[in-house]
Design a protein around this nucleic acid. Structure first.
Lengths: 218, 218
DNA sequence: TAAAATAGTTAGTCTTATCTAACAAATATT
DNA sequence: AATATTTGTTAGATAAGACTAACTATTTTA
């Protein structure tokens, strides 16, 4: 049996390594910082995870998920993103509220629950933040991503993801009526600073280039 | 913050006392048996719960929930039964599969989640076992639970729970084709001894009044 | 009512997940 | 290469929630 704490370590390792193309290994301090615990704690936990053959590492060496560990981590990510989708689509949670609750729900242990939830939601491909939802075989389809800055004036696009999902960004997004799958029309663009005037549900706003670069669209 | 273990003790106390009209207090051994832990463990936990003013008890005395403890317990029961309803109605879980998963889901902490789930389900009054679901104010409307003996001849009902689940009863049930969520049609009833002829999946059997009283139906 | 049975408590141990403080190894800098 | 800095490890502590074994209080019964 894998505890909730262990699941969190696996998920963290997945996000720090496998999820980002280049990196395949992490360090103790890095993991500790990510999980907001002390390096000593990570060290203890790694021993347990190594014992269970979920991670591979040697003293003073780099940390890597084993195949088994990766599979487990992907399952947790799958659950997290399915629950986020459920909260957003069915329970009227807003974009910035889903994460905290999904952090709890992702640890519920029931194979049937996950599969039925997936079916109930219509086998969604992306979660409310636009991140891909692994399928039941653990396959993840990463979509190539364009940002708002790539869209020409006059065109309409759909928001599918965000680069930075800090609370401050998400709150700003909600303020201007921006939600997942929002249709965004490009009204005009300033050559001077790259700021763009956009229209969402007949509501116009002007956002900076920095903001626009943070929005992945299709 | 109240831990999952603590929540389970409160819920157990509620079921052993407040839920049954007569009893208002429980003993250490009784609680231990119910929770499948040892009396010593219960004793330790009671000290914590007393400290938090969720139970009242004195050394060698009886255990009782405080008003606060009762309110908390009802909230947990509410969550449990809402989740059972969700699993049964939306995710195609069968009658006997919902409990185990609801035991996990009831500990998720999010006020909004509970209220939205309740709304999503259309503010259900009873769970898939026919037990009442407390409303958001903690009020519980106890309905008289119907048994097979309350169903008139000619009507059809659905099995939702059993009073006694001894092996001898279950074996008998299996023999006559009675399973969870079985649809039962009342063919005839003997005035003399209250025995009933029933039909399950086109198969007829005659059962005693004692047997019929053991079946909760909807 | 005295002995037996039952119920409840205490003390000490275990495991998990965390911490702090001190130490060791690896890497970077001058 | 010597030293300083960063990174990782170890040892020992703590808190929660469980256990066993031994003890004490209460209740039953002969």
């Amino acid at each position: 049996m894998i505890s909730q704490a262990e699941e969190n370590y696996l998920k963290a390792l997945f996000h720090l390594t496998n999820e980002t193309e280049e990196k395949v290994e992490a360090g103790t301090n890095e993991l500790a910082f990510y999980l907001e615990v002390k390096p000593a704690t990570v060290n203890d936990m790694l021993k347990k995870l190594k014992e269970k053959e979920l991670v591979s590492y040697k003293k003073y060496g780099k940390i890597m998920l084993t195949q088994q560990g990766r599979e487990y981590a992907v399952e947790v990510v799958r659950k997290h993103r399915l629950w986020e989708t459920f909260l957003y689509e069915k329970l009227e949670f807003s974009w910035d509220e889903v994460h905290e609750v999904a952090e709890q729900l992702e640890h519920i242990k029931s194979k049937k629950l996950v599969e039925q939830l997936d079916r109930f939601l219509g086998f969604p491909k992306i979660d409310p933040h636009g991140d891909p939802i692994p399928n039941s075989k653990g396959e993840i389809k990463y979509l190539k991503r364009k940002t708002l800055t790539d869209i020409p004036v006059g065109a309409v696009c759909k928001l599918v993801a965000v680069k930075d999902s800090s609370a401050s960004f998400l709150q700003y997004a909600v303020q201007i009526g921006l939600g997942l799958s929002s249709k965004i029309k490009i009204i005009s663009r300033q050559e001077f600073d790259g700021s763009v005037e956009i229209e969402i549900d007949n509501k116009r706003s002007t956002v900076s280039q920095k903001f626009a670069e943070n929005l992945f669209v299709l």
